[in-house]
Write a protein that binds this DNA or RNA. Structure first.
Lengths: 219, 219
DNA sequence: CATTTGACACCTAGGTGGCAACTT
DNA sequence: AAGTTGCCACCTAGGTGTCAAATG
């Protein structure tokens, strides 16, 4: 899942132990298709039968509120699959559907049913947060060059596909990168994506490799 | 530290939480030198002033007795240094000294003082095990070809230095490997090393990269 | 003279999109 | 036509011993 979801949490009890988990739930019961000439997602029938949502338990769990609040919590190890029979503990999604990632803060004393292959429990001791700007649509192939480019330019592992010096001069490529993306010091925020959504009318991501990144205060 | 120390533990309380830690303590207060023509370690004066031993807390800590007993516990991430000012949390040793690694099983409720840069606590709730056959001498350069070869042949990361097919034919190299070392299925045990000690009169290892591997039951 | 340091080639391990071949 | 799969080159990140040079 790239870009990874990143959150900062305040207001926890420093001495209380918490799990932090993420799950990804359907936004609606529709299936979508991408219409290339109008650059829009269109409804294309009803959703496939949903799979019970799995939980991704953040690997730093179990930790104290103090520990969680001192770091940016990154979900960059979360893996997605469209294989409904997956036994690797990955989160299972359908292609061409809309999804909402959610962050759960779970107090240790209410975590009896916590398991990667079970839905996240609800109720007392569990707080759930979701950010509408992180809704995304799963795809099976990139259909928008700016998304492809985002993923290539921002992900260190995709450096081999960058333009730099191939069909551009070195300096030209650097300048262009800086004109579209921000300097490396600044974290990419959800505004970057919503702006792209407005421009493109879409936001999509690929099978086994999706998603949204942002940093927010005051969760 | 290679080969890594590996242990199997039985007899813990399955529901009790434990830390498992390793430290490495001096065997005596002597400094050694290696006499090449006699293939022996000789005393070469008194030891350097000892540094307070650090603890390597196994990364699977904290875990239940049940969890610990179900796996082989490997210390392959333990790192050594001879830099007394180290701030990476590595275990600090002097070159050309003899050392004994120790394994500590620490019940959670007696682990108040547990820290990577502090000595392992002693007393109730802490059990310490040491295996005399894992004593080793630190060195600054390999002086025995069979040790060099052991480290090259057994460590996946050193595959680039293996003999296979360089100054031998492929089959010849394979046969020779199997004649001296065991088939890959079998775990290298301390007997392999003690036999080498008897033959060679030595057992030594290199700075930033040492040590002994064995698997034992009934710790 | 022994020891330490840094650059190096060579590995393991795993995360990228591209692409051709295949399935549906 | 759209989706899936496997293989690929290309990366990151880090664990090996070697060697030459610097250090003492």
């Amino acid at each position: 899942m790239f870009p990874a979801m990143r959150v900062k949490i305040v207001g926890l009890d420093p001495h209380q132990q918490y799990y932090i988990a993420m799950d990804i739930v359907p936004v609606d019961n529709k299936r979508y298709r991408y219409v290339y000439h109008s650059s829009k997602w269109m409804v294309a029938g009803n959703a496939d039968s949903p799979v019970p949502p799995r939980a991704y338990i953040h690997p730093d769990s179990l930790a104290s509120g103090d520990t969680w609040m001192r770091q940016v919590i990154s979900f960059d190890k979360l893996k997605l699959t469209n294989n409904e029979l997956d036994d690797q503990g990955h989160i299972i999604l359908h292609s061409m559907h809309k999804y909402q990632p959610r962050v759960h803060v779970i107090r240790k004393d209410f975590s009896s049913e916590l398991s990667p292959t079970k839905p996240v429990p609800t109720g007392e001791g569990v707080k759930t947060f979701s950010f509408p700007e992180t809704v995304f649509t799963t795809v099976t192939a990139y259909q928008n060059q700016q998304i492809t480019r985002l993923k290539i330019d921002r992900n260190p592992f995709a450096k081999g596909f960058r333009d730099s010096g191939r069909n551009r001069t070195g300096l030209e490529a650097i300048m262009e990168t800086y004109a579209f993306w921000r300097p490396p010091v600044r974290t990419l925020t959800f505004e970057d994506f919503t702006n792209m959504q407005k421009q493109q009318g879409i936001l999509f991501l690929q099978q086994r490799d999706y998603m949204i990144s942002y940093t927010t205060q005051d969760v």
